[in-house]
């Protein structure tokens, strides 16, 4: 489907593009600052002595003692006032130094790089699972609103959305790993380890995505332009292919961006259940152990990932919907 774009409109689009990129860069800086300051303030506001928390994270609770906590306090300078510690973190972050985990001593950037890679592979695989199910089911349901498939898929979607990801994961584990022995139950290292967690997360995403696709398609099919295409005499599949798909895909693509937040909710549970060494698992531990550098680094990475993702979604929507480029 070639896009008819004159030189003038292309130039206009280019200028708009530049503005969007610049806007997003400013947004990224603001997000980084807000995430850093708010994250830090929240950790400060948590009850409990950070030195004890960190010592518990490092040495295990059998060995946490006042002596260990004092060593931690002295080593990390936790006695210094909070603004001084925040300023130090900001200063280091400006020169792209995320520091070291106060619990493991590992470089935060290195830890995040490996965890993020694991989480991204899980998220992408889950998204593919979700799309593989939602697109055909949602399209067919939307083409015949109120039909059998529409109603069955609505019930299944509600059921899936109401099932906690944890329960879904255990059921899949029982079915595919224990009963059928087709897949490893948990762990990482082999490609097959990715399947069960991504299936769990994917099904979790499918619930809402199917309904979004179905609604977008149903709305498009009900529109006057589409009805006109049918009146021209085009058979339904051809009419949908030429005049429905692009219209219906705009809200779906926009929703995929929103879904990133849902993925994050899912990975925290799914990663922990399947012993998958990703960023969700790391984030919960960083909070529990008061590992401020690790938490700040993780939150920053996730915040910036959202900015990039929503930028990509914007670009995709602009590509799909010529009205946005006007």
């Amino acid at each position: 489907m070639p896009l008819a774009m004159g030189a003038a409109s292309r130039r206009l689009a280019g200028g708009g593009m530049l503005r969007i990129v610049a806007g997003r860069c400013v947004q990224a800086v603001i997000v980084a600052l807000v995430v850093g300051v708010v994250g830090f303030a929240m950790m400060e506001a948590l009850p409990g002595d950070a030195a004890f928390r960190i010592a518990a994270g490092r040495y295990g609770y059998d060995a946490v003692s006042a002596a260990a906590a004092d060593l931690v306090r002295a080593e990390l300078g936790l006695d210094r006032p909070a603004p001084a510690r925040l300023a130090e973190w900001l200063g280091h972050t400006l020169v792209l130094d995320l520091g070291r985990s106060v619990v493991t001593g590992e470089r935060v950037a290195a830890a995040i790089a490996s965890q993020l890679a694991n989480t991204v592979s899980l998220a992408v695989a889950a998204m593919l699972v979700a799309l593989a199910i939602s697109l055909p089911v949602g399209c067919l349901a939307g083409l015949a609103p109120g039909g059998v498939l529409d109603r069955v898929s609505a019930v299944l979607s509600i059921g899936l959305r109401a099932t906690p990801a944890f329960l879904l994961g255990v059921v899949l584990m029982l079915l595919l790993a224990v009963e059928l022995r087709a897949l490893p139950a948990a762990g990482h290292g082999r490609a097959s380890h990715l399947i069960l967690p991504s299936l769990t997360l994917g099904l979790f995403l499918t619930a809402v995505l199917t309904r979004v696709v179905r609604n977008a398609v149903a709305e498009t099919v009900a529109s006057e332009s589409f009805q006109f295409a049918r009146l021209k005499g085009l058979p339904l599949p051809v009419a949908f292919w030429r005049h429905g798909l692009r219209n219906a895909s705009v809200p779906v693509v926009a929703y995929l961006g929103v879904q990133a937040a849902l993925i994050l909710e899912g990975v925290v549970v799914v990663e922990s259940l399947f012993a998958w060494p990703g960023i969700g698992h790391a984030l919960t531990h960083a909070i529990f152990q008061r590992d401020v550098p690790m938490l700040q680094g993780t939150a920053l990475t996730l915040g910036l990932a959202f900015v990039v993702l929503s930028f990509l979604v914007d670009l995709a929507c602009r590509a799909l919907d010529p009205r946005m480029r006007a």
Binding site: P47, G48, F52, R53, V64
Partner: peptide, 8 residues
């Protein structure tokens, strides 16, 4: 809460 709240 957290285990360390006992020694603390």
């Amino acid at each position: 809460g957290n285990s360390s709240e006992i020694p603390a």
